[in-house]
Simulated scan of single mutants.
Amino acid sequence: MEITAVKAIPLSHDLEEGRSFGGTRGMTGSRETTLVRLEADDGTVGWGEAFASPRAVAALVEDVFADAVIGLSPLAAPSLAERVYTGDIGGYDTGRQAFVQCALTGIEVAMWDLRGKQLGVPIHKLLGGRGIESVVPYASTMYVTEWDQDPAEPMEAAAEEGFTAAKIKIGRGLEDDRHRVETAREILGDDAHIMVDYNGNYTPRQAVKSINNLSSYDLTWVEEPVPPENLSGYREIKNRVDVPLAAGEAHFGRFEFKRLIDEQLVDVIQPNLGQCGGFAEAQFLAKLATTENVLVRPHVWNSGVGTAAALQFAASLPDYPNAPEMAPEPFLFEFDRSENPLRHDILETPLDPTGGSLSVPQKSGLGVTVDETALERYRIG
């Protein structure tokens, strides 16, 4: 099997006027991404996602990556990142940049999708997974909204859908932080896992004060309390709080993740399978992390394709340091609950996180089928 065609498909869905939402460092009025479609000489199609500004990353896929990939066997997927870092693809001075990493991810994941379909097995088995059939989804919700939504509303919706865990947006001040966390805890109950996401909107001193002010709510982890580039800030917070820290959605490439791990700045890394370099890179990061006893929990705010990729990766992760079937906590998997038809409309069978459990697709490759007719509703030029 050889790759004969590479196509980048930029997608966008505009939200209704007045319905922008997001976190403390910005809101969005649309949902956007780029899918990568690879076709092999036998007609098999593989899909990946490059989670970045659609037109820009689509141009990068087709202008820089396509010629390098056409003619390759999908078996070459694990070597693609090395070719980018050394400059064989794109030039040596750009390989660590964010958009290049996103384009690389879309191509590489699509190659793995082809590999799985060629062999008739899901990607998590190709990656050596131990056969996990489901994970515990956590609702990514309680966003900052343009219409000033009551924070209880999205949390009540998550509870009605059967979620037993949630991640919420905070970072607008001590009083608001506490109100939001208290609301989430009251609605989901004492046994629920509650994570908070500051989106990097605080200084280290502000973050420490906020985190300590929330100590009575038993947070599972604190995500991005300071900007991603503020590594000294992570170090300062880590030394002054007793809650696990998480980061990774805004870090690109193995070298940035390696610093987070080597310097023990976080307790959880969160590679995104639309940005991190692909499955082989994600596995490499997982090995670095587990060597230092750092958890790996993918960040997921993607389309249905990127979500499926994250599920396949999650099912491949080791239990270390826990013995098999002896993990003291469930594997928590992020599932966005905001409006995004790119997550469900473009799949023939959408992923279903309701009821407190999310099945890992067991069909070959990514385990999902893209509805190419539906893609045309969201495709942009």
Results as ranks from 00 to 15, higher is better:
286 A>I: 06
287 K>V: 10
289 A>R: 06
289 A>L: 13
289 A>I: 11
290 T>Y: 07
291 T>N: 09
291 T>C: 03
292 E>Y: 11
292 E>S: 13
294 V>T: 14
295 L>I: 03
298 P>I: 07
298 P>D: 08
299 H>F: 09
299 H>L: 10
299 H>C: 05
299 H>D: 12
300 V>Q: 02
300 V>G: 06
301 W>M: 07
302 N>I: 00
302 N>S: 15
303 S>R: 03
304 G>M: 02
304 G>A: 09
305 V>A: 10
305 V>C: 04
307 T>H: 07
308 A>G: 10
308 A>N: 07
308 A>I: 12
309 A>C: 00
309 A>Q: 06
309 A>H: 09
310 A>S: 15
310 A>F: 07
311 L>K: 04
312 Q>L: 10
312 Q>K: 04
313 F>M: 13
314 A>N: 02
314 A>V: 03
314 A>M: 14
317 L>T: 10
317 L>W: 07
318 P>I: 05
318 P>C: 06
318 P>A: 10
319 D>L: 03
319 D>E: 14
320 Y>H: 11
320 Y>P: 00
322 N>M: 09
323 A>E: 14
323 A>N: 09
323 A>W: 10
323 A>T: 08
323 A>M: 12
324 P>Q: 12
325 E>P: 00
326 M>F: 01
326 M>T: 08
327 A>N: 13
328 P>G: 12
329 E>R: 14
329 E>N: 12
329 E>K: 11
329 E>Q: 12
330 P>T: 00
330 P>E: 11
331 F>W: 13
331 F>K: 14
331 F>I: 05
332 L>Y: 12
332 L>I: 09
335 F>Y: 15
336 D>G: 00
336 D>W: 01
336 D>P: 02
337 R>T: 15
337 R>Y: 03
337 R>M: 14
339 E>N: 10
341 P>W: 04
342 L>H: 03
343 R>N: 03
343 R>F: 06
346 I>N: 02
346 I>D: 06
347 L>W: 09
349 T>V: 15
351 L>V: 09
351 L>R: 00
351 L>I: 13
352 D>W: 02
353 P>K: 08
353 P>C: 05
354 T>Q: 09
354 T>G: 07
356 G>V: 04
358 L>K: 00
360 V>G: 04
360 V>Q: 05
360 V>Y: 06
361 P>S: 10
362 Q>E: 15
363 K>P: 00
364 S>H: 10
365 G>D: 00
367 G>C: 08
